[in-house]
Design a protein around this nucleic acid. Structure first.
Lengths: 266, 266
DNA sequence: TGTTCTTACCGTCTTCTGCTGTTATGTTAT
DNA sequence: ATAACATAACAGCAGAAGACGGTAAGAACA
């Protein structure tokens, strides 16, 4: 669990980073007091409380009098701040690889994945483009771009993912059909893609039905994890993109089971 | 046209304000050169170009080599930046009045109106609350609040309104039914509410069908305007809220035709 | 009631975004 | 070909937002 946080420490505001670290700390220790955190992170009690409030708002920890306790690991792992911290250079490489699949005029669907964010930065040259997404940071970014038709997929806001979901979102997805889907999950086995949360699975399944070409974006950390809900067999995806750091012996099994795997060059 | 811009000059970033002023200038003169604007506003050519690019992105002006020309007045009037400039104190008063209608636990729908933005600032004390809206600035604001269930109404992004619309949005609305709707329009006659753009009308009509109690928020400027599309008779609204600056002789006709009009105290 | 933990408020500080002009390069007309 | 106009890249600046800690008031627990 404490393993693969190969954090580039940049790219995230100081408080956000500290919050992610606090979250990790809490998850590791199960439950700690505010004062413990004061010592561990060298900030004032006030700041600790503010951080914990924010983490609680995101659903990552539960506050009670005298301390905080961790929520199930699942929600921590799908916490946005945490994910943003992880494997940024790999994600950039994956994004560049994905970009090559897009042609001007296409319609593209993005889910609430941090790789998608990196991908958006590469959109400026591929206009015109139609992009549909349920991920709030992505929506904000896209709204500022010209020559991009932005189709926001609404739904119930989740602070943990900073995205929209639930039935309303699934319905919005079902009304569409895009050329491409770029999608991410929290865990990948040799045969299937998995995700922690049921409501998210609901939306992602809908997205899979609503796109012609489906691309799964996977950084190497995902291949060594598991998660509760089976989302879909890997053969449902037309392409699975992994980063270069992925060990060869983890890639081969996917291919053996019929998946088309491409490796993104750094 | 140049009349009622009783601008409080505060509350809007300098460039945004200047852009709104440039837009007004262009609309008034029909078509001007970049250099004209440099003189008129005392900024560099570069800045003028940047402003014009932004205005073009919003669909308010058209750039061609050697200058810019205005788009039809309608789109200028429904331009967000312009609307944000107008009658802010009145809008705050209207928002306070509207706030009093909301009780904790209710579900509220907001359209893409600047008055709605003011209203959100007053939400913190009325939690829990469920809020549905298609207005991007509103969505961003609400996402940061706790104890608020945010239901984003997706759809096709319009840079002019900074909101989502079109059929996907209308469908999302139709799947809901809220206790309250706060809604705004671009023009109000003694008998009807009007709006410039057809797609917007589509969404607002859907919203009217999807709420139990419907409230129309109107600042006094709207009462002296007209617009192309008839949205709905005023009697479709349970309450029409106007600000205190509204001349009495403009209010009376509404009441004579059966509307329930309330005046928001400053 | 006393103690501990939490929250609210306030002033200061820093950090950061993003606006701006300048210079240099590209593009279109005449 | 040359002049007018438009874009791109760069870097400095300013204003604003937000982070932080301290103190004091409040709430929970014992």
């Amino acid at each position: 669990m404490t393993s693969d946080v190969d954090g580039d420490t940049t790219e995230l505001s100081r408080p956000a980073r500290r919050q992610a670290e606090i979250a990790a700390y809490v998850v590791e220790h199960g439950s700690v007091s505010a004062n413990d955190l004061v010592e561990a992170f060298g900030v004032s009690v006030m700041t600790v409380h503010r951080d914990l409030d924010e983490l609680e708002r995101q659903g990552v920890v539960r506050k009670y009098r005298g301390g905080v306790s961790a929520q199930p690991t699942s929600v921590f792992e799908s916490n946005v701040a945490y994910r943003l911290n992880t494997a940024q250079t790999e994600k950039a490489a994956i994004a560049r690889h994905a970009r090559a699949m897009i042609e001007p005029g296409m319609s593209v669907m993005l889910d609430d994945s941090t790789s998608a964010l990196a991908l958006i930065d590469l959109f400026e040259d591929i206009t015109p483009l139609t992009v549909a997404t349920n991920f709030l940071p992505a929506i904000t970014k896209l709204a500022a771009l010209r020559d991009i038709t932005l189709l926001a997929l609404g739904g119930i806001y989740s602070a943990t993912h900073d995205s929209f979901g639930g039935m309303p979102c699934a319905e919005a997805v079902e009304a569409l059909h895009t050329d491409l889907l770029f999608c991410s999950v929290s865990a990948v086995s040799p045969t299937h893609a998995f995700h922690q949360e049921e409501e998210i699975v609901l939306v992602k399944r809908a997205m899979l039905r609503a796109a012609k070409t489906k691309v799964l974006l996977v950084d190497h950390a995902k291949l060594q994890r598991t998660a509760l809900h089976r989302l879909a067999p890997l053969t449902d995806f037309d392409v699975v993109v992994v980063d270069e750091k992925t060990p060869k012996d983890l890639i081969q099994p996917l291919r053996d089971h019929g998946a088309t795997v491409e490796v993104a060059k750094l």
